[in-house]
Amino acid sequence: MAKQTPDELFETQFLPHLDALYRAALSMTRNPQDADDLVQDTFLRAFQFIDKFQVGTNARAWLFRILTNLFINRYRRAKREPEKTSYDEMEDFFLYNRLQDAYVSGKSDTPEAAVLNKVQAEAIHEAIGNLPDEYRETVILADVNELSYLEISEILEVPIGTVRSRLSRGRRLVQRALWAFTEENPR
């Protein structure tokens, strides 16, 4: 029997297992798009390392091992990464702008009075406590402990620019949480 080219080997040994790999990926990810990506990455990895495949061994098992390893690595990476949130849609001064709107519409005397009347210390602590870890650490160090950007940068071992962006995003998330609190707890 003549030796197969990588393309022929891929077509004869690997492609027949496409449906089974997709079903397994779908049961692992519970999301059709993620399953498609996982299968695609599996086949890409298999093609990249086709020279490592020993003809005559179980191609299906080899592909499932690749699929499983890729899934495990993604799961581990996802657990290490902070929750992803789109901050592009977040408005600067969210809380202040909502309070200013209330002032303009005659619902409060001043924005500051509205804050003092509606926001309780417990709500602030809860809003900060519910922040993702990296934002919570930064907000607590800056706004509660009043540390400088440089000090926070050294404590967290991140660049000052990262401190600034985390603090900005964290404050915006706190503002949104406080606004939600004021909406849910009118006086």
Rank of each mutant, 00 (worst) to 15 (best):
182 T>C: 13
174 V>C: 10
165 S>K: 09
151 E>F: 02
128 I>H: 01
5 T>G: 00
119 V>H: 13
69 N>T: 06
156 L>M: 04
128 I>P: 05
169 R>N: 12
6 P>A: 06
122 E>Y: 09
62 W>M: 11
126 E>N: 15
84 K>Q: 09
59 A>L: 07
123 A>E: 08
137 E>I: 01
76 R>N: 08
20 A>D: 12
24 A>T: 12
161 G>R: 03
69 N>S: 06
19 D>S: 10
43 F>T: 00
173 L>N: 01
9 L>S: 01
83 E>N: 07
88 D>E: 08
140 I>W: 01
12 T>A: 08
63 L>E: 06
63 L>V: 10
179 W>F: 12
126 E>Q: 15
44 L>M: 05
64 F>P: 03
121 A>C: 12
114 A>D: 05
11 E>V: 03
69 N>L: 07
98 R>M: 15
166 R>K: 12
118 K>P: 05
113 A>K: 13
20 A>Y: 07
113 A>P: 09
105 S>R: 10
138 T>A: 02
133 D>R: 14
164 R>E: 09
58 N>R: 05
103 Y>G: 05
44 L>C: 06
163 V>G: 01
108 S>F: 03
8 E>A: 08
7 D>S: 00
113 A>G: 11
20 A>G: 14
121 A>D: 13
37 D>G: 05
12 T>D: 02
88 D>T: 06
134 E>T: 14
65 R>P: 14
82 P>L: 09
1 M>S: 04
146 E>P: 08
127 A>F: 05
55 V>N: 09
145 N>T: 02
87 Y>C: 09
13 Q>W: 02
75 Y>S: 08
12 T>H: 07
46 A>E: 10
168 S>N: 10
